[in-house]
């Protein structure tokens, strides 16, 4: 009885940890999904998240409210989005190069601003962060109840999955986005403004990615640390591919990555014989698998990564 209780507890905390570490990746991946569906590949999600993380901690600090932090993060993400959209839609720069530029800019920029704003030895003391919200009844279910005891943002992340799915599938705006991603010339002749759709999805998506950054700095932790995103932006991009550009698929993919991460934390905790450095690699190995076409091909939007030249 004692033993089985412990096992249940481990499973329960494992499930909780999975969703907790998966949520920021899920939020970023959903943000990416919007622009990916419109044919934009944004490798700059990593940098956008980092900027969102810093903006989130600044916002939360200034307004002494984590939700204001998330809002400021969204605005900062949106600004990065405007810049990225200008580069890849208006100037038609190479999307990968523009994305890398954003990542480098974000890495240096956030470090500098962080040191100016919080000083060299930042501590978490004065930044309010999100707290867990237990959903009544549901959170009391044994084992899986831990799923319903999460940060408020995590629930939002989950709700965005069906929302995004139905938006893409059942609404005119979703159809317009998909058509722009598949065949912008046709969309144009059907009277759809390709530039507006791409600008719109990039900006909205980048705002969501910014919020994903805030989840890290005012959710999981309550301060900003340099390069704290540490690859989650890339993992989010991989999740979109792994999830075959489908919102529910993306949910599954991020849970799988979260699983890898949660697993390595648990295994370290129980003192597994495997060196922890190897365990740390797990989520990234999954990412490499996703990138290298492990999931099959030919499902990406046709116009993915290609700028649209009118006329």
């Amino acid at each position: 009885m004692e033993v089985s209780n412990t096992i249940l507890q481990i499973i329960s905390s494992f499930i909780e940890a999975d969703l907790r570490v998966a949520a920021p990746i899920l939020i970023a991946a959903i943000g990416l999904l919007y622009m990916e569906k419109a044919g934009v590949v944004n490798i700059g999600a990593e940098g956008t998240m980092l900027i969102g993380a810093l903006a989130g901690s600044i916002g939360a600090y200034l307004f002494q409210n984590p939700w204001m932090g998330a809002l400021v993060a969204a605005l900062a993400g949106g600004l990065v989005g405007v810049m990225f959209a200008y580069l890849v839609v208006t100037v038609k720069a190479n999307q990968i190069v523009a994305g890398i530029a954003i990542n480098i800019l974000a890495l240096g920029g956030t470090t500098t601003v962080n040191r100016i704003f919080f000083g060299l030895n930042a501590s978490s003391s004065d930044i309010p962060s999100f707290t867990k919200v237990a959903i009544p009844l549901l959170s009391e279910i044994p084992v899986i109840g831990s799923l319903f005891n999460q940060l408020g943002l995590a629930y939002l992340a989950i709700l965005m999955v069906p929302f995004t799915y139905y938006l893409m599938k059942k609404t005119t705006i979703g159809l317009s986005i998909r058509s722009v991603g598949e065949h912008p010339e046709s969309a144009d002749t059907a009277g759809i403004n390709v530039f507006r759709i791409r600008y719109g999805t990039i900006i909205i998506g980048s705002m969501i990615i910014g919020v994903a950054g805030a989840y890290l700095s005012v959710g999981l932790l309550s301060f900003f640390s340099e390069n704290m995103v540490s690859g989650r932006g890339y993992i989010a991009l991989a999740s979109v591919i792994f999830g075959k550009w489908n919102a529910f698929g993306v949910l599954g993919a991020t849970l799988l990555f979260g699983f890898g991460d949660a697993l390595q934390i648990r295994m370290q905790a129980i003192g597994s014989a495997i060196p922890y450095q190897f365990l740390l690699m797990l989520p990234y190995l999954l990412t490499v698998a996703a990138w290298s076409g492990f999931v099959g091909k030919a499902v990406a939007p046709k116009a993915s990564g290609k700028p649209y030249f009118k006329g």
Binding site: K170, T171, T172, I173, G174, L175, S176, R178, S179, E182, H183, S186, A187, A190, G191, I192, K302
Partner: peptide
């Protein structure tokens, strides 16, 4: 657009009766 259905192709860009639903 080959990846879309006939209906989706035909109504692409047209205002729907119950906007924004297709």
């Amino acid at each position: 657009i080959p990846e879309l259905s006939v209906v989706e192709n035909v109504i692409l860009g047209i205002k729907q009766r119950r906007e924004p639903f297709l």
